[in-house]
């Protein structure tokens, strides 16, 4: 499990990120506004993908907690782009058949009279394939 070559290569291909550039400073996790929601934190995503330990990530709700605010991307001193790694793992998960995190049936419970269309559109893009 610790060295799942195929998964690792897939995630790296989808994300376009070179995880070996990480110097383990932890600035991504220091800057992350969703840190406390996550079981695995941005620096762990980078490190676990680099070491091929990806199954736990695929099974974790942490995938759906990233806000895509890109703060980790802009503040990373090494240009690693952790948010892209999270995105790639999430895509790998939701692209599986029946793995959509959200369906149209969930919408009535979410919306109120002020809900902007942008919220629903964005959520669908992030949580479904």
């Amino acid at each position: 499990m610790h060295n799942n070559r195929y998964l690792r290569d897939e995630i790296i291909r989808i994300s376009g990120v070179n995880t070996a550039k990480c110097m383990k400073c932890g600035k991504c996790s220091a800057t992350c506004p969703a840190y406390d929601e996550m079981e695995y934190h941005p620096h762990q995503f980078v490190n676990m993908v680099e070491s091929g330990d990806i199954t736990p990530l695929l099974n974790s709700d942490s995938l759906y907690k990233c806000l895509s605010c890109f703060a980790c991307i802009d503040r990373c001193p090494r240009g690693v782009e952790p948010a892209k790694v999270v995105e790639a793992v999430r895509l790998f998960a939701v692209r599986k058949q029946g793995a959509n995190r959200m369906t149209a049936n969930d919408v009535p419970a979410i919306v109120d009279e002020d809900t902007p269309q942008q919220l629903l559109v964005s959520a669908f893009r992030k949580y479904t394939k």
């Binding site: 291909r13 989808i14 994300s15 948010a83 892209k84 995105e87 895509l91 964005s122 893009r125 992030k126």
Partner: peptide
């Protein structure tokens, strides 16, 4: 619609 968020994946 633009889709609301950019999907960073290259594929």
């Amino acid at each position: 619609c633009c889709g609301g968020v950019f999907t960073s994946a290259d594929d």
